[in-house]
Design a protein around this nucleic acid. Sequence first.
DNA 1: TAGATTGTTAATCGATTAACAATC
DNA 2: TAGATTGTTAATCGATTAACAATC
Lengths: 208, 208
Amino acid sequence: MYNKGISKAVINRLPRYHRYLGMLMDKGVVRISSAGLSRQMNVTASQIRQDLNLFGGFGQQGYGYNVAHLYDEIGKILGLDREYHLIVIGAGRLARAVGSYVGFQKRGFNVEAFFDRDPRKHLDDFDDSIKVYPLDSLAGYLKDHKTDIAVIAVPSDAAKQLVPILDKGGVKGIWNFARTDLQVPDHMTVQSVYLSESLMQLSYKINH
Amino acid sequence: MYNKGISKAVINRLPRYHRYLGMLMDKGVVRISSAGLSRQMNVTASQIRQDLNLFGGFGQQGYGYNVAHLYDEIGKILGLDREYHLIVIGAGRLARAVGSYVGFQKRGFNVEAFFDRDPRKHLDDFDDSIKVYPLDSLAGYLKDHKTDIAVIAVPSDAAKQLVPILDKGGVKGIWNFARTDLQVPDHMTVQSVYLSESLMQLSYKINH
DNA sequence: TAGATTGTTAATCGATTAACAATC
DNA sequence: TAGATTGTTAATCGATTAACAATC
């Protein structure tokens, strides 16, 4: 798939464009200029045009951008035009919250199993039909079930130990909620959500 | 409090320094050079020295940095040396997960109340002693209870409507988990955790 | 003291913004 | 066609890295 030196900063902005375009679609807006989008999003029109042009000429001079088309194209760039098999490792509060959040989004991200060291502990208050398996069975599960993404919501030490198992099991991406950096081989990728860092950034801003 | 043109990029890195220093402390490491820290964290030693020097000369030539001292200083910069009164708005899975996560961190972030449109719905499966109040009572609660931070974990539309209420109630910072940008007056601050954007960034990386 | 390592300035690199010709 | 707006190059700005004198 096309890549070609797209900077991290640009990738980080794409989902936000996508979100605003989705809102415009919901409002029934058919077309938008970079200047119009710029006003809504509080970024420069120049940046919008620059960003979008890295991926191709989605606009039309004198007209602007077709909202639905641009929404779809950005969706494709982000990989939202396909299905993903997900598992969640951990069955604590955060794991379950993230698991149901993902399911709720109703995109192609399908949560198919939970794993926990003690699967019985949590089974009772699951109101959906997804099973909680013992962590021991993870490697075996991955042999039988093609899995694209593993959500990690267990303590740091446990999280690090999971990486080789997930790698062997063919998992491509990790969505990491543990408070640790995870080293993965080149053919895998990690996206981390550091809640404590986010809270610290907030407390910094409150005090300065 | 001292600020003075510290860039966003630097602030974003401080919690990570803090985390690594905490780990070094746990291991009993007393001092560390920028080069040593650089190897562990995968950033340049130059950047570490540059970053730290924005806040003062924490190091010593020929010696490096005292781990415990640097840890404390960065903690102070981040505002971790004081107490915060928190409330959580929303009592769904994500709200409860974040609420207990914050409490679990055992820093000065004290979650003191939950609010929800329908407080009865969720009361039963709360195993901690924190109360869920009806959302109607939020303004009244804030009158009686000094509150520093509100965690928002409700749908986007509801989230936006909360801002003026929180502002009137003297809340200083919002930790936003809703899928929307929140506009706040200058004397308030927002830190957002966009879960769906994070997941999209992961799917982008998987496909490229 | 000699060696190590910071603090800090200068050089480089990358990202953002401005400008405008191309074109719908 | 004339007006609007993109695509794209050039200019600016900011952030990162390199270098080294200061100093513990």
